[in-house]
Structure formats: C-alpha cells, structure tokens
Amino acid sequence: MTIRAALLTYVGLLLLLALTVASTFVPLGAGNSLINLAVAVAKAALIGMVFMHLRRSGLLVSLTVAVLLFWICLMYGLTLNDYFTR
C-alpha cells in the first residue's frame, strides 16, 4: 500500500459516508435500506482490500475471510428464511 492509495481510499470512504447520510433525506422506502447496505459493503470492501491488504494476501488469508462470509451466509440465511417465508 502506498500513501497515495491510502489517501484515495480515505477520500473514497468519506465520499461514501456523505452519500449514505445524504440518501436518508430522500424518502425511498426500502430503497434507503438497500443504498445503506450497498454503501456499507462498498466501504467494508475498500477497507478490507486496501487497508487490510486483502488484495495482495495469500490463499490462506483469503480462505479465512471466505470462511467468515460462508458462516455469515449460513447464519443469516437459515434465520431470515423463517421471516421471509411466513
């Protein structure tokens, strides 16, 4: 990671923060939650890829993160399918 990359990431994160806060003043119903979720995922991806070096990490670390995402999908999928199929 270079200072330039870190700075660009930081500016990107602040712009995404401004976007998500600004979007709350536009009533879009469920669209607001979707925008917030998309922005949060984008911010997390920026922090993970650049600040946490996941872009250049080896197979073992990538696999570890994939395991986390897998368990989260399992936990949320099995719990929320009950709510959405009632």
Binding site: T64, L68, I72, M75
Partner: peptide, 24 residues
C-alpha cells in the same frame, strides 16, 4: 500457502471469531 510466517493468519482467524460475534 503464500503466507509469511508472520502471525497474520492467526490475527485473521481471531478476526473471523470476532466477525461472527458481531454478526450474531
């Protein structure tokens, strides 16, 4: 495995457990 003997893998395993705590 592409991982330097650095402790990085251990930190990530810890972060996965933390991630699951917050996910719950």
């Amino acid at each position: 495995t592409g991982v330097e003997p650095s402790g990085e893998f251990g930190v990530f395993v810890f972060l996965v457990s933390e991630g699951l705590l917050f996910s719950a």
